[in-house]
């Protein structure tokens, strides 16, 4: 059996095409998997962002609860033993009985 010899140039060209095809395929697959991975990362981050925003809102509400005037007054009167000043104990400088 006689095998036809492939010209060297053709062989190199074929090999190059094959390598290029494999490269493109590899890149394409890599691109697809990376896109999918980034999509998942992005989604995770978005979920985290939403969760953090919710957490910030809840913490702001908690802060408002801790700073509520009823609680502040209770702490001031019961824990810190503060009391209202007696009549005449406070002098107002620059008072004028008017407002802007």
């Amino acid at each position: 059996m006689i095998r036809k010899k492939i010209p060297r140039r053709q062989a190199i060209l074929g090999l190059a095409v094959l390598v290029l095809t494999l490269l493109i395929l590899t890149f394409y697959l890599r691109h697809l998997t990376e896109t999918a991975r980034l999509g998942l990362v992005q989604r995770d981050l978005e979920v985290r962002l939403i969760r953090l925003r919710d957490e910030v809102k809840a913490l702001e509400a908690k802060k408002a609860e801790l700073l509520s005037l009823a609680r502040v007054e209770t702490v001031a009167r019961q824990d810190l033993r503060l009391d209202d000043p007696e009549a005449g104990q406070v002098i107002f400088e620059g008072g004028g009985g008017t407002h802007k």
């Binding site: 000043p85 406070v90 002098i91 107002f92 620059g94 008072g95 004028g96």
Partner: peptide
């Protein structure tokens, strides 16, 4: 704030309008 201090007392509150 009041136009005049009711009585001269012990605590001075310096406040800005």
């Amino acid at each position: 704030f009041p136009a005049s201090s009711p009585v001269r007392g012990l605590i001075t509150a310096s406040v800005r309008s």
